[in-house]
Structures are given as C-alpha cells and as structure tokens.
Design a protein around this nucleic acid. Structure first.
Lengths: 138, 138
DNA sequence: AATAAGAATGCGAACTCTTCTCATTTACGT
DNA sequence: ACGTAAATGAGAAGAGTTCGCATTCTTATT
C-alpha cells in the first residue's frame, strides 16, 4: 500500500483514506462527487461512511492532493491534483467534462485583478455547451 | 406600479412579483440571494413567503429579467439583467462583488469551445481575491 | 509485541438551501 | 362583478453536506 503520499501530506495512513486515494488514482473518470466515491467504495466491498468520504475529501483538498469544483448542479466535484492548473468545459447534455488551459486567459485575469485592485487568490472558469457527440443526436 | 415589465415577460402582474422586481430595481446592492430578498421584503412589511421568492426569481431568470450566479458558498445569487454581459471578481474577505468584461477572454472562450467541438451555450468566470480595502486591514 | 493516548471512523441526527404539496387567495378576461 | 385558472403562503420534504459522539483504529512508546 502506498501510505507515503498520505504521510507526506501530514495525514495518518488510515484505511478509509488509503482506499479513497487509491480509488481516485485508479479511476478513469477524473471528476467525481463525494457520493460517487462513496458508492464506488461500497460496491468494491469497502465499509466506509459517507461522512468519512466528505471529511477525507475535504482534508485532501486542504492538503493539496485534490481540487474541489463547483460545477452547476449543486454538489461539489473532486479531481485529483495533477500539478498543472487547468479549466473546464462541460457538456450540458451528457455531463462530459473536458479540460483546457489558455495562457492568454490566465494573463488577462491577472491583469483584470490588478486593475481592480484585487490580490487574486483563485479563479474558476467553466464553459458550458453541447459536446460533439450530443450535437449529432438531433 | 410598473406592471408592464412583467406583462412583457409573459408573467401575471401579481403583488409578490411586483414587489420583488421593484426591490431588485431599487436596491443599491446588485447581487442578492433569495434569502436576502425575502428578508428585505419582510422588513419592508411585505408579507411574502420564501418559497414564492424562490419561485419568482426562477421565473424571472427564465424570462431573462434576472441572471443567476453560483458564487462559492452554496447559495444562488441573483442579479438584475443589465443587457450587457459581464463576469465577476469577488473579495473573499468582505464579499464585495465587482464586475468586468474582457473581450479577449470572451473571444478565447469561443475559440476553445470550437476547438473542443462544443456548441457553447454559456460560461461562468469568477475571479477570487482580496480587495483593496481588505488588503489594508493588517 | 503489547499498550496507552489521541485521532479517525461510522452512524444517525442536524443543518442549509431549495423545491414541492396543497388548501386558500388573487388576477384578469368576460 | 364573476368564474376560472394561476399564484401564493406555510410547512413538509428533498438534496447535499456537516456535526456529535461512542467506538475503533494508528502510531509512538515500552
């Protein structure tokens, strides 16, 4: 088991944390709600509580292992940190999520923050649309 | 009373709708949650239900009278439609909200959507930071 | 390897924001 | 003014998330 990542993040290597991290790393879906993680673990025969999943994901976020997003639709969505910042474009029909990174937009944002007198801490950019697949279906 | 705006939007000119619209138009705060609107009306002596405020704001949104935002923090925030699209920059300390519009960013977003094969329907961009005022306070 | 002490867990209750249900009231064309 | 359909208010219900607490783990120390 790879408890070193957790140790490094200053977190005790408990079974639920290990399982959740492992799941995030091995899943091919990159953006998941707490509920998604919870259900997947239950189906794998793990015995975790939903509250624990929420707690752990929040800790992972604080530790920088995970990034939390607020897509439309209310619930939080989590994504394993990949080192490189990026924004998201999502399909309003099928829910597909794509990622992109645009240096020009990044620059402009910094510029705007400065102009407005803000010390920028963060930003979130979501583009919504209908993906190629969904456009075909009438 | 100005019921014409409501009529034009295809909505019956009921008292709660009139009051809510009037309040949105006369308030100097431009971004308000349903709860904010509800409380303000109660304090003005109006007798509205919170459910009605939610319903009406949702109808206003559908009618294009109002725009709904999902700032961080969970609840929806509403803003009177001003014709011209803009994005937001908000202070994470005091909650202040500023608006901006950047043609370059707009263009880039369209370009990205096209590249990724999406038919763009909408987008949301929020910059978070500490505003000038709040930077001064220690 | 056993132990002690504190941290983490699971469960259900609680909380927040929002929507729904439904009996009652209101707006508006006639 | 009246009738009808739509809108309202109140509280219940729903979704997502957090909290409280008794129990169970981790881990540093023997």
């Amino acid at each position: 088991m790879d408890s070193s990542e957790l140790k490094r993040a200053g977190l005790k290597a408990t079974l639920p944390r290990l399982k959740i991290l492992e799941f995030l790393e091995n899943s091919d879906v990159r953006h998941m709600s707490a509920e998604d993680v919870y259900k997947a673990l239950l189906e794998s025969g793990e015995d975790v509580g939903l509250a624990t999943v929420y707690r752990v994901l929040t800790q992972f976020e604080a530790a920088g292992l995970v990034v939390r997003h607020h897509f439309e639709g209310g619930q939080s969505v989590f994504e394993l940190e990949q080192g490189k910042h990026h924004d998201h474009i999502l399909c309003v029909k099928c829910g597909k999520v794509d990622e992109f990174m645009d240096e020009t937009i990044e620059e402009r944002q910094k510029k705007i923050a400065k102009e407005k007198g803000y010390a920028m801490t963060d930003h979130s950019l979501y583009i919504y649309g209908v993906c190629g697949e969904c456009q075909k279906e009438e």
